[in-house]
Design a protein around this nucleic acid. Structure first.
Lengths: 106, 106
DNA sequence: GTCTTTGGATACCATTGGGTATCACAACAA
DNA sequence: TTGTTGTGATACCCAATGGTATCCAAAGAC
């Protein structure tokens, strides 16, 4: 039901893919347009886009001969949720430590 | 000067390492203690810890014979910053689109 | 129609990554 | 001292990954 976050973290772990996301934040782009921004072949960019789609961070849609690649901001939510969870537990532990120190008889 | 975020994203991309972070949120742990939580050898856990240290998410400190592994919450900040940047640009684009629609004569 | 462009798919290569096995070393206990 | 425990480091294995080259199909442009 709820999406696995692993594909999202995987997609974010490559600098080329993060750069693709940055570019797609500004405008939708075709594979050909994205390829012009990198020093690699179209096939390589296509592979990165597939991984970004698997991570639910990008959505692709055919329009005639071209295929429009679009950011999917909802895909980032599970990642942010996990990091928040992480932060929450850290805070909890910090609070527990603080409480322990305060209670400790000198 | 400012740390490269790539090692942090890399460290977060593996489920075992995310689980290690979750465990370390609750308490500091030695490698031996961490190894008991996983179905793998101490050497494998050690490798994961090295990657987490490279990503600045964990800090290790020798205490006599043992080595204490501790969460470094500051290491998560660059990651959160990047994701915020991402969010910001998405919002900006969304606003631009909204404005364009509102301005568009019907 | 033909040609060009855009993209999908596959095979292939070199490197990285996660894992084990193993040896060596330092610290503590007896 | 002898042994045990916690750790570091290395060599090795196999799968995954990032990349290329290549072929193929379909949509537009001419």
């Amino acid at each position: 039901m709820t999406h696995d976050i692993q594909p999202s973290f995987r997609a974010l772990s490559d600098p080329t893919r993060r750069e693709i996301l940055r570019l797609l934040c500004q405008q939708d782009m075709t594979i050909a347009a994205l390829t012009q921004e990198f020093d690699m072949t179209r096939a390589a960019v296509k592979k990165h886009l597939t991984i970004l789609c698997d991570g639910n961070l990008v959505h692709s849609e055919s329009q005639g001969r071209t295929r429009i690649n679009r950011i999917n901001p909802d895909g980032l939510r599970p990642v942010l949720d996990w990091l928040s969870f992480f932060d929450h537990f850290w805070d909890t532990r910090l609070d527990a430590l603080k409480t322990a120190i305060e209670r400790k008889p000198q």
